[in-house]
Simulated scan of single mutants.
Amino acid sequence: MAHTLTALDAFNSRPPDEARKELIACCASRAFAGGVAERRPYRDLDELLAAAEAAVKGLEWGDVLEALAAHPRIGERAGGGSREAAWSRQEQSGVEDEVREALAEGNRAYETRFGHVYLVCATGLSGARLLARLRERLGNDEEGERAVVRDELAKITRLRLVKLLGGER
């Protein structure tokens, strides 16, 4: 029986620069992309997802900020034709027009308080729920919020890796 080349097989066999480029679409930190690409080959999607989560959680804060810089504000539509922009528009599809202004105000307050974009895994959440989470997180101290940001970044990265490799999770 012949072995069929899977998306993971293709990812594992890509030249390092191509693998890093694909990983940047999932988490826009060069340290993340380099670290995960270096550890190839992965036996299965679960091994890749575990490595990606560990890599996100292990990023220096400057590397997290690099990844955050690629994310549009919640409630704003990502422009352009890149894979990341399309994924962002899909992830934020639950944001209703009537909450966009409140989200814009919340984003400004959050950025003033923490110095970076409010990041949340928006997939499946309504605009109202995203706004409620933003308001809750404004009460976090800096260290607590950094932990939440890492968790949210790991969730987004996981979803995007599954999309990249055509898996269902």
Score class of each variant (00 low, 15 high):
Met1Gly: 13
Leu5Thr: 14
Leu8His: 00
Asp9Trp: 05
Ala10Thr: 13
Asn12Ile: 13
Ser13His: 13
Pro16Trp: 06
Glu18Gly: 04
Glu18Ala: 15
Glu18Val: 15
Arg20Leu: 07
Arg20Cys: 14
Lys21Asn: 12
Glu22Gln: 09
Glu22Gly: 04
Ile24Ser: 01
Ile24Pro: 00
Cys26Arg: 12
Cys27Ser: 00
Cys27Ile: 02
Ser29Met: 07
Ala33Thr: 04
Ala33Ile: 04
Val36Arg: 15
Ala37Gly: 05
Ala37Pro: 05
Arg39Pro: 01
Tyr42Asn: 06
Glu47Ala: 15
Glu47Phe: 09
Leu48Asn: 08
Leu48Met: 13
Ala52His: 14
Glu53Ser: 03
Glu53Asp: 11
Ala54Ser: 13
Ala55Pro: 04
Ala55Cys: 09
Ala55Trp: 01
Val56Thr: 09
Val56Gly: 07
Lys57Met: 08
Lys57Tyr: 05
Leu59Val: 03
Leu59Ile: 04
Glu60Tyr: 07
Trp61Cys: 08
Trp61Arg: 05
Gly62Leu: 02
Asp63Lys: 04
Val64Tyr: 02
Leu65Ala: 06
His71Gln: 09
Ile74Gln: 01
Ile74Thr: 00
Ala78Asp: 12
Gly79Phe: 03
Gly79Asp: 06
Gly80Met: 03
Arg83Cys: 07
Arg83Asn: 03
Arg83Val: 15
Glu84Lys: 10
Trp87Gly: 00
Trp87His: 03
Trp87Ile: 06
Gln90Cys: 11
Gln90Ile: 08
Gln92Asp: 11
Gln92Tyr: 06
Ser93Phe: 09
Ser93Ile: 05
Ser93Thr: 10
Asp97Arg: 08
Asp97Val: 01
Glu98Gln: 04
Glu98Tyr: 02
Val99Ile: 12
Arg100Tyr: 01
Leu103Glu: 03
Ala104Leu: 03
Ala104His: 01
Gly106Lys: 02
Gly106Phe: 00
Asn107Tyr: 00
Arg108Met: 11
Ala109Ile: 09
Tyr110Val: 02
Tyr110Lys: 03
Tyr110Asn: 06
Glu111Gln: 10
Thr112Gly: 07
Arg113Asn: 02
Arg113Asp: 00
Gly115Trp: 12
Gly115Asn: 12
Gly115Thr: 11
His116Asp: 02
Val120Leu: 07
Gly124Trp: 10
Gly127Gln: 02
Ala128Phe: 13
Leu130Cys: 11
Leu134Asn: 00
Leu134Ala: 01
Arg135Asp: 15
Arg137Gly: 07
Leu138Pro: 13
Gly139Leu: 11
Asn140Trp: 10
Asp141Phe: 00
Asp141Asn: 08
Glu142Gly: 09
Gly144Lys: 15
Arg146Tyr: 08
Val148Asp: 06
Val149Asp: 02
Asp151Cys: 03
Ile156Trp: 05
Thr157Glu: 06
Leu159Gln: 14
Arg160Lys: 09
Arg160Ala: 07
Leu161Gly: 14
Val162Phe: 13
Leu165Asp: 08
Gly167Ser: 14
Glu168Ile: 14
Glu168His: 12
